[in-house]
Write a protein that binds this DNA or RNA. Structure first.
Length: 288
DNA sequence: CTCCAGCGCA
DNA sequence: TGCGCCGGAG
């Protein structure tokens, strides 16, 4: 299955910044964090600006976390910006400003889990590991398991399954990882897969079975955004990002009518370290 | 409405 | 293991 996938990838892969020759490992790390639950099209411009401003981890570590949160802009899940700043500090101080190559060392960094650790080791350093994201899980569920959609994520099963598909050769393994992800993003998409354009359609278990409806357990549906604490947090963060001076409680209140929910959101932002301050001194992004 | 190169916590 | 966490495009 790897051979036709690699051939297809050589032909059809999108021209993306992190696939440029010579793209630094630090850039790969930043891009992977930004791409967690955020689409490629929204990431690319933020990534370019980020790397221009902070070409190495130490450059980011030398700036206050507030600058990282502002540069993150509206990519969403701003805890990622805070984690990336903390990871940059750890890399600068404990790894001689070199992004780790070892998966366990990567996993020890904040904001880096099973997916991102292996993605950096594979795409930045060319090592041989299974890289499993939602695209990979969907492609494997269909091609290998004959199921229309991937069930709830199970790293214990997903990683060995992808591993079983990887060629022995390091470079071929890395290309296969990238190819399966790209196939899931461009062809084997969630809603209406373009099986006519699929390089492995002739050996897809789901297609061979006549596209049966998914029966097993489903991935949990994500909760509503409208009216959620997440929405309120986002509105408060927008206020904090926009101000160079502490924002008073009365300046924050207009963003949301429910005072109790606003309190809850603000408290959670303080708990996450995304905001600092109090009613007396006002609230601001973390500067230390 | 759903989906998106997930992570970290209880 | 389930859930909360952002925001924009289709």
């Amino acid at each position: 299955m790897a051979t036709p996938l690699i051939a297809w990838f050589r032909q059809e892969a999108r021209d993306l910044p992190w696939r440029r020759p010579g793209f630094p490992a630090w850039g790969t790390l930043v891009s992977e964090i930004m791409l967690q639950q955020t689409q490629v099209a929204r990431v690319v411009p933020r990534l370019e600006a980020w790397l221009t401003r902070w070409p190495t981890p130490a450059d980011l570590a030398a700036s206050p976390p507030a600058d990282a949160v502002r540069a993150w802009d509206r990519l969403g899940y701003p805890r990622r910006a805070l984690a990336l700043h903390a990871a940059a500090s750890a890399i600068a101080e404990q790894h001689d400003n070199v992004v780790p190559r070892n998966v366990d060392a990567l996993l020890a960094l904040p904001g880096i889990g099973d997916y991102t650790a292996r993605a950096v080791a594979v795409f930045a350093y060319g090592d041989r590991h299974p890289v499993v994201d939602v695209n990979v899980r969907r492609v494997l569920a269909r091609a290998l398991l004959g199921q229309g959609e991937p069930g709830p994520a199970k790293a214990k099963q997903d990683l060995p399954l992808m591993e079983s598909v990887l060629p022995a050769d390091r470079d071929d393994a890395a290309a296969t990882n990238a190819a399966v992800m790209e196939l899931g993003a461009l062809v084997c998409v969630a809603r209406s897969p373009a099986c006519d354009a699929c390089p492995i359609a002739d050996r897809c278990a789901w297609r061979a079975a006549g596209y049966p409806e998914h029966d097993g357990p489903r991935a949990p549906k994500q909760s509503k955004f409208a009216g959620s604490d997440r929405q309120v947090r986002g509105l408060v963060m927008a206020e904090l990002r926009a101000s160079d001076v502490p924002v008073t409680r009365s300046e924050i209140e207009p963003v949301w009518p429910d005072a109790e929910q606003l309190d809850r959101a603000l408290a959670s932002l303080l708990r996450d370290g995304l905001a600092v301050g109090d009613d007396a001194s006002g609230y601001r992004l973390p500067d230390g």
